[in-house]
């Protein structure tokens, strides 16, 4: 009865690897961006915020199409990767990671930014009077205080990348074991009228997404008084 083909399992493995790697990279990249956005009074704050949020507004196929053009042999990114000896990014796993970084960026940066903003100046000033270096302050004061922001950022980036479809469709090329992720596999099943296999994967994804959100609310309960 339970009928997942080796192809299905390969798609699941690939999707988890993509989402995991993307989440780790996004926390590393997103933290400094969010910190800067939360602290700066620069005139660049608004344009940078807008760029970071853009992937949330654009249809994924538009984002995917521009990435395809930019990373193609004639595009600026494509020329750069070729010059660096990395080859071209479309149709590779690395290409999917790069695309996912753009695609899920707002989901990492915004919770972090809001967490940093909510800390305010005072804890930082107190830490400074106790002779904590800025780096020390960040790791011993900011990180613990912004914990809910980090949990939200990680879970949302991971879940959002799992559900990524339009962008992958545009730049992935649907190659088994390399770029055929779960959402594309489900789409293929449904389009080919293989509804049974489609249901197994889609149902699994539904349950998974529900559990992810449940975990998120467990760590970051929405109502005061529900905090563990």
């Amino acid at each position: 009865m339970f009928s997942l083909s080796p192809d299905d399992w390969s798609a699941i493995r690939l999707t988890l690897a993509l989402a995991g790697l993307t989440t780790i990279l996004l926390l590393l990249i997103g933290t400094p961006i969010a910190w800067w956005l939360a602290r700066t009074a620069s005139a660049w704050k608004r344009p940078v915020s807008a760029v970071v949020t853009l992937p949330m507004v654009l249809p994924p196929t538009v984002l995917g199409f521009y990435l395809l053009v930019l990373m193609g042999p004639e595009g600026p990114v494509g020329r750069l990767t070729q010059a660096l000896g990395l080859g071209l990014l479309p149709f590779t796993f690395s290409g999917l990671v790069v695309a996912s970084l753009f695609y899920s960026l707002p989901f990492a940066v915004q919770p972090l930014q809001q967490a940093f903003e909510a800390i305010g100046e005072r804890p930082l000033e107190v830490a400074a009077t106790l002779r904590a270096s800025p780096l020390d302050t960040f790791f011993t004061v900011v990180l613990p205080l912004a914990r809910p922001g980090f949990v939200t950022a990680a879970v949302m980036s991971f879940a959002h990348t799992i559900g990524e479809f339009g962008v992958v469709l545009m730049i992935g090329g649907n190659i088994p074991d390399r770029t055929r992720v779960l959402s594309v596999q489900i789409y293929d099943h449904v389009e080919a009228l293989e509804f049974t296999q489609g249901h197994w994967l889609a149902g699994g994804l539904l349950v998974f997404s529900f559990c992810v959100l449940l975990v998120l609310y467990r760590f970051n309960p929405g109502q005061p008084g529900m905090r563990p």
């Binding site: 809001q114 909510a118 800390i119 305010g120 809910p148 950022a153 970051n220 309960p221």
Partner: peptide, 24 residues
Amino acid sequence: IKFFTRRRSTFSPLTRGGTGRGLL
């Protein structure tokens, strides 16, 4: 998003609590 978070924080006196949660 800020509008939402701000609105949320009027319900909750915990300013820090309103950080990551409001977003979702």
